[in-house]
Design a protein around this nucleic acid. Structure first.
Lengths: 231, 231
DNA sequence: AAGAGCAGTTTGGCATGCCACATTGCCAAA
DNA sequence: TTTGGCAATGTGGCATGCCAAACTGCTCTT
């Protein structure tokens, strides 16, 4: 048996089921597991050197977060990436980002410190000048997460996690727009939040998502025409 | 062995894992499994006459939907019901209901038929006159679901399902407010949706959730002071 | 009486193995 | 050449069993 793993390995995170979950999730988001790909339990289990049980525990979670869907008797498939789904995603994302920004601004008005936000913004500024794409994308993600944390609403954070995952998956096919414009909008949002201007922060956040939608949707549409999802 | 179950039984739904999931979910929502209750795999498995495997598959899903949390090495616990969580819940619910109402109204403006909504409203009217509490609660839930369906946003539906579950759990301790007032608000919302008045529908929906919040939060607070959650 | 071990037991984590459904490929009959 | 059926095999669904960590309650010591 393979238990008592041979010293090396050590994925470091919690349970094996959780490792499988995170591994699959990343694969789906970054596109290594493309839309429509079948997920065969035995295959995953062998690849990750675990039994099928942790895999079977990871799948329901991935399904409930919308990354895969399991057909009645045929197992799991990576959900297709459709234009419709993208539209829905942006609608939901706008609503939730607006709420997050508003709550974060209210928190700041009530005394919370936006220091973390401003630090991230500063680092994003440097990365933008250095044109370090990956770094920028990462910092942008972390900025949005920091706003969520500031909002103080754990449920909102929980709901946004898969939503952001899907956004990342989308952006993998349709790169997010011009970094400098993005940065300017982030500055404005963070300013509004720091100063406790809730409705302004909400409006800016909404516009931010809408800009993102307007920029990426046409690209996504074009991409998805070319490669319709396989069954 | 217990396989080849003795003819009766037949819970009708899909897999056993799914049965376990739904069974646990209902138990948590209706309070049979109170906040803080431990969920012992073997116990559930025996109660439902299945092995531990389907149980272990149901738990991750319940966790990712916020019904339980699993402590590192100690298994699953029903999430406590706190005032804070209730506040967060109402904030998120308001945002999402607003989106649903707006989208549903836009759908109607674009030609979708609100017949289903109006039928439910009619039945709710009858049930209100008959003062059939359970029936009313059920119809109210279905009304909100129908709005979600009309919105056409599947992601939104998916996100709202657990949110509504938590709302139901909350209302189990703090009954929802006066049925007639509720009914009147529903009528107004449905009217706005049917006529395609998106912003009106959104505003009414928001007010609807806020009324619900204002009515139930104080009750919840009182209830939760009495019985702080156990560890 | 209070505290520090120390078995016994509970409980989650996981591997293995069996079964039934389903898909696939092949062959034979028309 | 096409089609109907039948095996071989792939694959998910689940039960069972072992292990190790954690909890329990005891005793034995100070």
């Amino acid at each position: 048996m393979t238990a008592e793993a041979p010293a090396e390995e050590g994925p470091a995170t919690g349970s094996r089921a959780n490792n499988v979950y995170e591994w699959l999730r990343e694969r789906i988001i970054d596109g290594s597991l493309p839309p429509g790909a079948r997920i065969r339990e035995r295959e995953i289990a062998e690849e990750l050197q675990v039994s099928r049980v942790p895999v079977r525990e990871a799948l329901p979670q991935l399904e409930s977060e919308g990354y895969i869907e399991t057909l009645p008797r045929r197992g799991a498939v990576v959900v297709p990436l459709t234009v419709n789904a993208a539209v829905e995603l942006f609608d939901v994302r706008a609503s939730l980002e607006v709420l997050a920004a508003r709550l974060a601004a209210q928190a700041c008005a009530a005394g919370a410190s936006p220091a973390g936000l401003e630090a991230l913004l500063e680092r994003a500024h440097e990365a933008t000048e250095a044109a370090d794409e990956d770094q920028i994308a990462d910092l942008n993600s972390r900025l949005h997460e920091e706003i969520l944390v500031l909002s103080g609403n754990r449920l909102l954070q929980k709901l946004m996690t898969p939503v952001n995952g899907h956004v990342r998956r989308l952006f993998h096919v349709a790169k997010d727009r011009d970094q400098e414009e993005l940065y300017r909008e982030h500055v404005a949002i963070v300013q509004a939040i720091s100063r406790g201007h809730a409705e302004l922060a909400a409006a800016l956040s909404f516009a931010h998502v809408e800009e993102s939608r307007n920029e990426s949707l046409p690209i996504v549409e074009r991409q998805l025409e070319d490669r319709p999802h396989r069954t």
